[in-house]
């Protein structure tokens, strides 16, 4: 589905990603772990198309399309979704209006008519149930005054509504209590099919108990220094990152 080759990117002269190679196929869940400052969120932002980052080398192919040539909205239209680590508050726009606009903008790009209101409402109700979201929530302003848990739940609600092919969950577990974590993870699992893929970015093994990855990658200093199965996450939880990062630092010194 997505194939990242030798991706080098950064902000101005500061190179953050120093040659990322990653291949994710439909139906797979990949976890990207790593210490603070290793480049995890940068990778997420570069895939989503944040213009603050400049790509210096490498390619990202998404189902045959050169992703780096597309605007953030075009990437969303072909099925890329980023669940933000820090979702943005937008006072003045209700959750329902925001989601309606997102869906209709994507439909417009595909030359489809706006979604009929009853269909939209039915879909919203179903997805809200999935994530244990109460009714009054739809008329609240986008993320305004939301608790950390509500913001993350709102991200996954949008993911459920937009039905992306590739979802990148950037530290979706941060700031969540264990009950909310379970609800959010269960929601993600229900959205998961054999046709879509998920990249989970996290510091901790905890989330991976609920969203079970097929592959775990360790990102350090802008490179993937180790890949393995879900057992690797357990190993990291026990031993920390030092044992692999030291080895890698020697190699790239």
């Amino acid at each position: 589905m997505i194939s990242i080759k030798n991706l080098k990117a950064g902000i101005e002269d500061n190179l953050i990603l120093k040659g990322i190679n990653l291949e994710v196929k439909a139906g797979e869940v990949h976890a990207i772990m790593g210490p603070n400052g290793s480049g995890k969120s940068t990778l997420a932002c570069v895939i989503a198309g944040k213009e603050d980052y400049q790509v210096q080398e490498g390619t990202i192919d998404f189902e045959g399309e050169d992703l780096l040539e597309l605007s953030p909205e075009e990437r969303a239209h072909i099925g890329v979704f980023l669940s933000f680590q820090y979702p943005v508050e937008i006072p003045g726009i209700s959750v329902s209006n925001f989601i309606k606009t997102s869906i209709n903008e994507r439909r417009k790009a595909k030359e489809l008519d706006p979604i009929p209101a009853p269909e939209l409402l039915k879909m919203m109700r179903e997805k809200m149930e999935l994530l244990n979201i109460k009714k009054g929530y739809l008329s609240r302003n986008m993320n305004e005054g939301f608790s950390g848990g509500e913001k993350k739940r709102n991200e996954i609600f949008q993911m459920a509504m937009l039905e992306p092919k590739l979802a990148i969950l950037d530290e979706t577990d941060s700031g969540l209590d264990i009950d909310t974590l379970r609800i959010v993870a269960n929601g993600v699992n229900k959205i998961k099919t054999k046709d879509n893929a998920i990249i989970v970015i996290t510091h901790y093994q905890r989330l991976l108990d609920y969203i079970v990855p097929d592959f775990v990658h360790v990102l350090h200093n802008g490179r993937i220094i180790k890949s393995g199965s879900k057992e690797l996450a357990h190993e990291l939880e026990e031993k920390g990152y030092d044992w692999i990062t030291k080895e890698a630092d020697k190699k790239w010194a």
Binding site: A76, L82, V88, I90, P91, F98
Partner: peptide, 30 residues
């Protein structure tokens, strides 16, 4: 307009001009 909010909206598929318009309307909506 807030650049972070603009990127957030674009990442949801709302085109730049439309995202700016929605944010502008949000500003006026109060």
């Amino acid at each position: 307009l807030d650049d972070d909010a603009l990127f957030y909206m674009r990442s949801r598929g709302i085109r730049e001009k439309e995202a700016k318009a929605v944010l502008t309307y949000a500003f006026a909506s109060e």
